[in-house]
Structure formats: structure tokens, C-alpha cells
Design a protein around this nucleic acid. Structure first.
Lengths: 104, 104
DNA sequence: ATAACATTTGCTATTTTAGCCAAATATTAT
DNA sequence: ATAATATTTGGCTAAAATAGCAAATGTTAT
């Protein structure tokens, strides 16, 4: 059988990105960033979890290349650098009736 | 701070889908299905892993609503029911230069 | 220099996921 | 009915992900 197989390296990168998005807190973080950059403290307040946990989640997103960070003063601001993830989420929201790209 | 927060139920569903895609074997399965339905045995051969493992991966994809299964004769065929995941993968493939939806 | 604040990193306990084997189930062939 | 084939499920173990606490780091204010 010669079914299409994608390059291993590409698969690994895609998996890393999907993995990063595969957590409720991180996914909400991404969506909160749709309006623009946010400081770490904002996430901490919004979720009411430990700072260290917030930081870890953000670093998962950063390592996957979904967000970038910038230090200004004593704060660190995160911003979305891969806005297409919002498209993905929007697409998935139309549950069961997803015609995006009508790939068929 | 009144940042946008998506409905919890929607988030959970999205997370389930991303989680399903967040594994190299499953992601390749999805891409193999882009050409059309495939029998379980094809995946088994392609990956050389245990049948039970193949079956488990497929059920993760099915529970997430990404594929559907149909039994015909003594075989079970899986097919993609959410082709937009292919769009997502294609988008992520343009590493670092993803302008899809130009959401910015 | 010291203190206060914001964030990250090291460590540990807990939970979740992955993958195999063996057993169960379902379908077709004999 | 029995055997052979295809797939799923239960049980188990190893590996990975999550979350909190405490300590470390870097930045601004005193």
C-alpha cells in the first residue's frame, strides 16, 4: 500500500503544536491573546492558579512557536505569533458541520 | 480585565480534538486518510505496531469526532469526517510563515 | 545595598497516556 | 458447529504530562 506519509520532522513539529493546544488552560490562554498581548499576571488572575503553573503553560506555548514573550520593566508580555491557531479553533467550533477548505 | 473567554464546553471539545491529533501515529493516520477510507489492517501494516494499539489510536480519533468507522465484512474501515484537520496540518507545515486567515 | 515585586526553574507527587499481551467479540469459510 | 480471520477490550507496566511549593533570578523602588 502506498498511502501518503508526511515527513517525520514535519509531523514532529505539528504534534508539538497540537500538544501545546491540547490543554484547556493553554487553549484559553491562546484565545485570550487574540485581542493582543497580555502580561503573565493577567493569566494568573484569570485562572487563579499558581504563577509557576502559568509560567510553565506559557513556556509550552512558546516552545511550540505559538506565542512569543517580551520583557518590559518587571513584567513579561506574551503575544500570539501563530494566529492561525485561532482559525483552527473557530473551525472546530462549528461542531459537526465543518466545511473549512471543503477538503473532500 | 475583561479578556474574551470561550465557553467551557466548547473548549473541552476543542481540547479533545487537539489531544487526539497530538500523537505522531494518530496524526499520520489522519493524513493517510486524506486519500479516502482505509481498513484497520492497513494501519497495522504501515506502522508495524500491535493491532490493539492501532485500534486504541483509532478509537481516540473516533471519540474526538475526527474519523468514523464502518464495518463491512470482517473488516472495519475508517474515514475522515472532519477534513478541516488536514487544512490545519497544511497550515502548520508552512513553518514560521503562516498567514492563514491573516488573523492579525 | 536592600527590599519588594514579577516571573522562572528545580523538585516531587499525582494523573494521564502509550503499548503490549491475552482474552473476548464478531464475521466469514468449511 | 467449528475454525479462521479481523478487530476491540481488559489488565498491566512504563513513560510522559500536570501542578504545586519553594528557591532562584531579574527588575524597579527606597
Amino acid at each position: 500500500m502506498n498511502v501518503k506519509r508526511t515527513d517525520e520532522k514535519i509531523i514532529r513539529k505539528q504534534v508539538e503544536i497540537f500538544k501545546a493546544l491540547a490543554h484547556p488552560t493553554r487553549l484559553q490562554m491562546v484565545q485570550m491573546l487574540s485581542e493582543g498581548e497580555l502580561c503573565v499576571c493577567v493569566f494568573q488572575e484569570a485562572f487563579g492558579i499558581d504563577f509557576s503553573t502559568v509560567s510553565r503553560h506559557l513556556s509550552v506555548l512558546r516552545n511550540a512557536g505559538i506565542v512569543s514573550d517580551e520583557k518590559r520593566g518587571k513584567n513579561v508580555f506574551y503575544r500570539l505569533v501563530r494566529p492561525c491557531v485561532l482559525e483552527m479553533c473557530a473551525c472546530l467550533e462549528n461542531d459537526g458541520d465543518c466545511r473549512c477548505g471543503n477538503a473532500e
